[in-house]
């Protein structure tokens, strides 16, 4: 009885685990892909020094726009940041102490790393 109960549980959990992840039904959404594009670079201030703790945010420039994961990505002590995104065109900005630098654009490709440095005023 106990063995039958365990077998039933395993079967049920397997059903639960694999029953619901059908492909997206959103007609206008980009096709899912596991291949991510990487954008990395250094945030610097007007004097060229690396900026620690700047919030780096991408915005999709594609039409229709690609939804951007709402992670908090901050530059490190060396000013470096790194984003992994669905391939596409993006505009990146860095913000620190209410100063937002000029946007910088990158057209990314799956499996490729693009370098994009950002400036703060």
């Amino acid at each position: 009885m106990r063995r039958a109960h365990l077998a039933l549980l395993i079967g049920v959990l397997a059903l639960g685990a694999c029953g619901g992840e059908a492909p997206s039904s959103d007609a206008d959404a980009p096709p899912p892909t596991t291949a991510r594009a990487t954008v990395t670079g250094v945030v610097t201030d007007s004097a060229g020094w690396p900026v620690d703790g700047a919030l780096v945010q991408p915005r999709s420039l594609d039409a229709p726009p690609r939804p951007v994961p709402e992670l908090a990505v901050l530059s490190g002590p060396d000013g470096r940041y790194e984003w992994h995104l669905t391939p596409g065109r993006y505009e990146f900005t860095a913000t620190r102490d209410d100063r937002t630098g000029p946007p910088a654009e990158a057209t990314t490709e799956a499996g490729r790393t693009d370098h994009l440095d950002l400036r703060l005023p």
């Binding site: 639960g16 685990a17 029953g19 619901g20 992840e21 206008d28 959404a29 229709p64 726009p65 690609r66 939804p67 951007v68 994961p69 709402e70």
Partner: peptide, 23 residues
């Protein structure tokens, strides 16, 4: 919650469905 504004102008996130709830 997972994504900022997408093609339809709204923020979004994966919905809790029956199979996800069970999982």
């Amino acid at each position: 919650h997972a994504y900022g504004v997408g093609s339809n102008g709204h923020n979004s996130g994966p919905r809790i469905t029956e199979s996800r709830f069970n999982l």
